[in-house]
């Protein structure tokens, strides 16, 4: 063994192949999700305007853009974009997690966390939890249309999505409400750090002030979105929405 250094210098490194590029991909796809859940939440809140308004809104999403788009076209575009973002987001996360794992083969016997938030440290497991929830959520409302409620026959979602919603969160199905509220907690955690992290990854936090603002943005996005989503099941289980 002679010189320690000068063995392997990387020549012609490309930005697009870097770990930061992976993070940028996560940030960009994450923003797509944030925008999506924001609109999704807005739609959910239509439930407070009553059955008619809610179902009209649902139908409007399908007929949006006609005749340029076919019936349900917007939703298919959305599905493609979301699926693409999901693949990017999860793919990048898995790649980065594997790097992190390989970098610390021997763990510390004692390790303290000094500055990181709980939300930032639970991003990976929180992400997995959200993924499981999304699968369940799609099965529940879209694909299998599982309706375990006591409201008799499951109304076809294309005919009456409002009923599907209300029936799902009836008081006797408190556990369904619990699943959704837990999922919203996980979403809040993920959004709390994810929003800040995306802003930082995009390079918009070059001062202490802008970093503080990005942290506030994390809180706002987490509370508004997760809180907004939680309103509907909560108000349903307590009978305000029926």
């Amino acid at each position: 063994m002679r010189a320690v250094a000068t063995t392997t210098l990387i020549k012609g490194a490309r930005s697009t192949r870097s770990t930061i590029a992976l993070k940028l991909l996560m940030a960009a796809s994450g923003i797509v999700f944030v925008l999506f859940v924001l609109v999704h939440m807005y739609g959910n809140l239509k439930a407070f305007s009553g059955e008619l308004a809610y179902n009209e809104y649902a139908e409007h999403l399908r007929t949006f853009g006609e005749p340029y788009l076919p019936y349900g076209g917007l939703l298919w575009i959305l599905r493609v974009v979301l699926l693409g973002s999901l693949v990017a987001h999860v793919g990048a996360a898995v790649a980065l997690a594997r790097r992190a794992h390989a970098q610390r083969p021997v763990k510390y016997a004692v390790k303290k966390n000094k500055a990181s938030s709980l939300s930032s440290r639970t991003m990976r497991w929180g992400g997995v939890a959200l993924f499981v929830f999304i699968v369940w959520h799609l099965l529940h409302f879209t694909i299998a249309k599982i309706n375990v409620g006591k409201g008799g026959q499951a109304p076809d979602i294309t005919e009456n999505p409002y009923r599907l919603l209300v029936n799902s969160f009836l008081p006797e199905q408190w556990w369904m409400v619990a699943i959704y509220l837990l999922a919203m907690l996980a979403l809040a955690f993920h959004l709390h750090h994810g929003t800040f992290s995306a802003i930082q990854t995009l390079g918009f936090t070059n001062t202490a002030e802008s970093r503080a603002r990005a942290r506030v943005a994390g809180w706002v996005v987490a509370i508004v979105i997760a809180g907004g989503f939680s309103l509907v099941p909560l108000f349903t289980v307590f009978g305000v929405i029926s």
Partner: peptide, 24 residues
């Protein structure tokens, strides 16, 4: 920035998750 991050990655250092333990 391109060549330095290239070397950083090639050395096996992990990606940043912006959690802030480093600065602390």
């Amino acid at each position: 920035v391109q060549s330095m991050i290239g070397q950083h990655d090639a050395e096996g250092f992990g990606g940043c998750t912006n959690i802030g333990e480093c600065a602390a």
